Simulated assay, not measured.
Amino acid sequence: MSNQTPTQTPGPGTSPGSAPAGAPGAAAPAAPPKGGSGAPPFPGTKPALLGTLATVVSLVVLVALGEATGQLLMIAPLAATAMIICSTPALPPAQPRGVVLGQLGSGALGLLAAAFFGHSLWVAAVAAGLSVGLMLLLRAVHAPAAATAVLAVLQDPKPVGFLVLLAVGSVLLVLLGLIASKAGVIAKYPTYWR
């Protein structure tokens, strides 16, 4: 008689080296979250209110600075950036690397696409899609930045001015996130820089 156990081929839903479903020692399937939804739980009233307040303040600061300089800083992609930083500060898309590199890389890609291929919805769609690959390559994934590529194609901004304003807006939102975190308004931010 051998001390070896028979080798089993993993069945559906199992991986090599794991016990078959229902076998002793097999991990029980994860129970669905309360309420049957896979959505994240409500963070609580206080975090929700403070995250909302931090987002409003961040966007009002962008508007005020834009009004003071005669420039448009409060663009839709940066509004989405403010929401991500202030409501989910621990997630990778909220981190400074993703915010700044994602926004600037996608903005530059959109400008290049428009310069070579013109200003159309077709070019905007391709630029937004390619911006995803660029962000993955840079390890700086930030979903609102795909919209920045679209904006760069369809709005035909002055390239240098657009990139400077995008950099200022992105860095300002990161700084406002830092301030909000230090003040205890939002959770720890950032969780990493590089």
Rank of each mutant, 00 (worst) to 15 (best):
A143V: 01
P92N: 06
L163H: 08
L130R: 06
Y189E: 00
L104N: 08
V123K: 11
W193R: 02
I75M: 14
S18M: 11
T14N: 15
M1G: 06
A68M: 09
V132S: 03
A108H: 00
V100F: 15
P33S: 12
L53H: 03
G36N: 00
T5K: 12
T7H: 10
S181F: 02
Q95E: 01
K188Q: 12
A152M: 08
A180R: 09
G35M: 09
M1T: 06
P10I: 06
H142G: 03
L136F: 11
L78I: 14
T81P: 07
P157N: 01
V164C: 03
S58V: 06
V99T: 10
A167I: 07
P92K: 04
L73I: 04
S15Q: 14
T148L: 15
T9L: 13
A21H: 15
P24E: 13
L78P: 07
G35L: 10
R139C: 04
M135G: 08
A21P: 10
T81Y: 12
G13K: 04
I84V: 15
L172A: 09
V168G: 05
A21N: 12
L163G: 00
A152T: 09
A19D: 01
K46D: 00
L173N: 03
V132M: 14
L112T: 10
V160N: 05
S58E: 08
V63S: 10
W193A: 02
I179S: 12
A27F: 09
I84Q: 07
A115Q: 13
G98H: 03
A128D: 00
D156H: 12
G169W: 09
H142Q: 12
T14D: 15
A152V: 10
A108M: 07
L65H: 05
A149F: 02
Y192A: 11
L138M: 15
V185T: 14
L91N: 01
G11K: 09
G102W: 13
L112F: 13
R139P: 00
P12W: 08
L138A: 15
A79G: 15
A19G: 05
G51W: 06
S37D: 08
P89E: 06
G184Y: 13
G51L: 04
S2W: 06
K158L: 01
L65M: 13
L50S: 12
L173T: 06
A79D: 07
A26K: 14
L165Y: 02
G38P: 00
A115W: 15
L137S: 07
